[in-house]
Simulated scan of single mutants.
Amino acid sequence: MEVFAAFLAHIDNPQHRGRTEEVLTWVTKKFPDLVPKVAWNQPMFTDHDTFIIGFSVSKQHLAVAPERAGINHFSDDIVKAGHDHTKELVRIKWNSPVDFTLLEKMIEFNRMDKVDCSTFWRK
């Protein structure tokens, strides 16, 4: 979690910071083989130098970015979990619970789908 310390320190709202830290810690513990890093001022996790999942914060929500393929694959599940999404990210409102089961599925999907991917982003 040291890699995310500076990012977390810049989140002014203590509740938002705590939620973000909770999610990043969960990913780190659940998937210890993923590489945590900050790029483009966003915390993310990679596997064999390919993007798996990223996060960002806004005033209204924590954004989860599993790439477009992850959004497309889990669109119905995202809506069922009570979140809205764009083509590239899921918005988890600060007052909504995090669906860790769905988050786990998105990460596992990207790991399996990108097992032979040799680029950072899907092409």
Rank of each mutant, 00 (worst) to 15 (best):
Q60P: 07
Q60W: 10
V64W: 01
L62M: 09
I52M: 04
I52R: 00
I71S: 04
Q60N: 09
H48R: 11
I52E: 00
R68T: 14
A65Q: 10
D47I: 13
S56K: 05
A69N: 06
H48K: 13
M44I: 08
A63Y: 13
F45K: 00
D49M: 14
S58L: 06
K59I: 15
S58D: 00
R68F: 07
D49G: 08
T50I: 11
V64A: 04
H61R: 09
V57Q: 06
H73D: 05
D47R: 13
A69M: 10
I52A: 01
K59Y: 11
E67S: 06
H73Y: 15
F45Y: 08
Q60K: 15
T46Y: 03
I71P: 02
T46K: 09
V57S: 09
L62K: 03
M44H: 06
F51K: 06
M44K: 05
A63I: 09
S56N: 06
Q60M: 15
V64F: 07
F55R: 03
T46V: 06
S58H: 05
Q60H: 12
A63R: 14
T46Q: 10
T50A: 12
A63E: 07
V57A: 10
V57D: 08
I71Y: 03
T46R: 05
F51Y: 14
G70L: 01
A65I: 14
L62T: 02
R68M: 14
G70T: 00
Q60C: 06
H73I: 07
P66G: 02
G54F: 04
T46M: 07
H73V: 08
F51N: 05
T46C: 10
I71F: 11
T50H: 09
H73W: 14
V64S: 05
S58W: 03
D47T: 07
D47P: 04
A65S: 11
D47H: 12
G54K: 09
I71K: 08
G70R: 01
L62G: 01
H61Q: 07
M44D: 03
V64E: 01
T46E: 07
D47E: 10
D49F: 14
T50K: 13
G70D: 02
I52D: 01
P66C: 07
A69H: 06
D49N: 15
T46P: 00
V64C: 02
F55G: 01
A69S: 14
N72S: 11
F51Q: 04
H61N: 09
V64L: 14
I52N: 00
V57T: 08
A65K: 12
S58G: 11
I53W: 00
L62P: 00
A69C: 11
I53M: 03
D47C: 13
F51M: 06
D49I: 14
D47V: 14
